[in-house]
Every structure is written in C-alpha cells, then in structure tokens.
Design a protein around this nucleic acid. Sequence first.
DNA 1: CGACATAGTTAGCTATGCTAAGTAAATCCG
DNA 2: CGGATTTACTTAGCATAGCTAACTATGTCG
Lengths: 149, 149
Amino acid sequence: MMSRGKSPDRREIADRLHSAAIHLLRHVRRQDAHSGIGPAQFSALSVLVFGGPMTLGQLAAAEQVKPPTMTRILTGLERNRLAERIRDPEDARRLQVRATAKGARLLHEGRRRRINYLAEHFSELSSKELALLHEAAEIVHRALRSTRH
Amino acid sequence: MMSRGKSPDRREIADRLHSAAIHLLRHVRRQDAHSGIGPAQFSALSVLVFGGPMTLGQLAAAEQVKPPTMTRILTGLERNRLAERIRDPEDARRLQVRATAKGARLLHEGRRRRINYLAEHFSELSSKELALLHEAAEIVHRALRSTRH
DNA sequence: CGACATAGTTAGCTATGCTAAGTAAATCCG
DNA sequence: CGGATTTACTTAGCATAGCTAACTATGTCG
C-alpha cells in the first residue's frame, strides 16, 4: 500500500525543494557576472553547445520562450560572435543556429565557474550526503520529464 | 571510472543538481503567469509575507538586488496594492515595507499553484524517493547557508 | 556648525519577456 | 498552374527587472 492519504506530505516536500532550487540558483547566478553575457544568452548557448545546431524555433521551444524573444537572444549572441545563423538548404524559412568555437569556450568557462562554486559549498558534505544529492537530482529530472504537458 | 573509488565526483554531482534546479524552476515558473505579477515582485512579496515588515535596504539584501532595483519592484507592488511603504519613526531616512492583506492572499495563491504543480509531478514517486528529496532539500539549504561569502 | 555617512530615489542604459502584425517561403488544393 | 493557407522568423512596441552614477534627505560625529 503506497502512501495513500497519509503520505509524507508531498506538498511540504515540494515546497522545500522549490525553495532549495531558488536559493541554489540565486547563489550560482552571481558567478555569471564574469561571463559578460546575460542568463538567457548563457542558457541558450548551453543548449546549442550540448544539443548541437538547431533551428531558431527548436531553440525557442527548448528554452521555453517565444520566437521573438529567441530572435533577440540570438542577435545578442551573434553580436558577441558566440553563435551564428546558417541558411537551411532544405527550407529557406528556417534558420539553423550554431554555437561558435568562441561560444563553446565561453560556455565551458562559465559552467566551470558555477560548478566550482557549488562544489566548494558541498565540500563539507559526507560521501553519503553527496550520493543522496546525486540521486535526488536524477529523481527530479525524471519526475519532470514525465507528465510533461 | 570517473570516481577514483573514494569520493564520488563532487563537481559531477554539482552539475547534475544545478541542472535539476534549472529545470525545476523553469517548469514552476510557467504557473506564475496566472498571478499577474512578475517573478521579482512575487519573490520580494514572499520575503515580506514570511519575514514580516522590513526596510527597503533589508529587502534588497534579502533578494540580492541593489536598492534602486528594489525601489522599482516596490513601486510595482504598491501600484498593485500588494505592499506599502511606511514611515520609520526612528529614522526618517528609512522606509518600512509591509505586505498588504491582498498581497499575502495573492502570494499564498501563487505559491499554492507552484507547489501543487510540483506535487503533481511527484505523484508517481515512492515514499522512499520523496523522503530522499526532502532530505536533499535540507542538505542544499544547509550547504548554501554555511560558507556564505 | 560643518563634514561625512547612510538610506532611498531618479535617470538612463541593457537584457529579457510578451503580443500583434509584417514578410517570405512552403504547401495545399481547386 | 495559381491563389489561399500555413509556417518560420522578424519587427515594433510594451513591461519588468537588473545595473551604475548621481542626487536628495537625514543622521552622526568632531
């Protein structure tokens, strides 16, 4: 009988996890000031670097923003030579967007800063606690991937 | 073998947790469209409701933004009658900021939407997984509170 | 009293989100 | 074939939210 009715309050847990996520990102975001680009550009660049070239529409969907917003984010990335528009030979309406080598480099540096910062905060945790965090991250990923509406 | 036996790679874990936090907040943020106010106003209101009245400077510090930014966030909250400025009798330079009843109501509704959404995504998890998430949230809170620079 | 310190505001810039409307290309269909 | 529709992106215009620099008002201290 799986936690019916008297479950260890799911909403309470969701609340605490929600709060933890907010605080975590609030902290790491401070490390981004050194990257020279804003959070939306950084995040879009990340999708491009790890996901490979894609159309503007796909990138907008991946970032959960509307196409006009992605047009502008891309304009910013191009101005900084971090990404580029490429003609799509199959459909001239579409644009392929690709990270440049400079973009990939900047992304990896920024990511390293964020991760180092977090890892430093985790330095006092035991191996057991670290393993628990790792598992929690995977559970969250899985839970959010399912039930995707 | 990314882990040389002993310590599970702290940076790998930080990376996955970072990514999980991003995805989690990206999902819940979509629920906020119904609240009618932006994320910064929502977050500041949350601090006011749970932390009680405080000065503009304290509120800015809590939200990790600069005073001019908080001035504008507060202007937006006041326009919507969600918070109000109060004279500080002890020091006329200072402002006390307080959430209104309407503000508290709106906050609780928005929070409920976010939490319900998350809790729904967690509905397929076992009690054990839920307990793990809960513990992870507490570990993250603790890790970020310490080593605060 | 005058100099300095502190708290907020104003002004002006950038980035990021939106909707509505425009342009260009592909596709549908009579 | 060719006009109507759909699709992909851009442009225009608006709002929020971040910053620094400079200003105002108030408090504190020598």
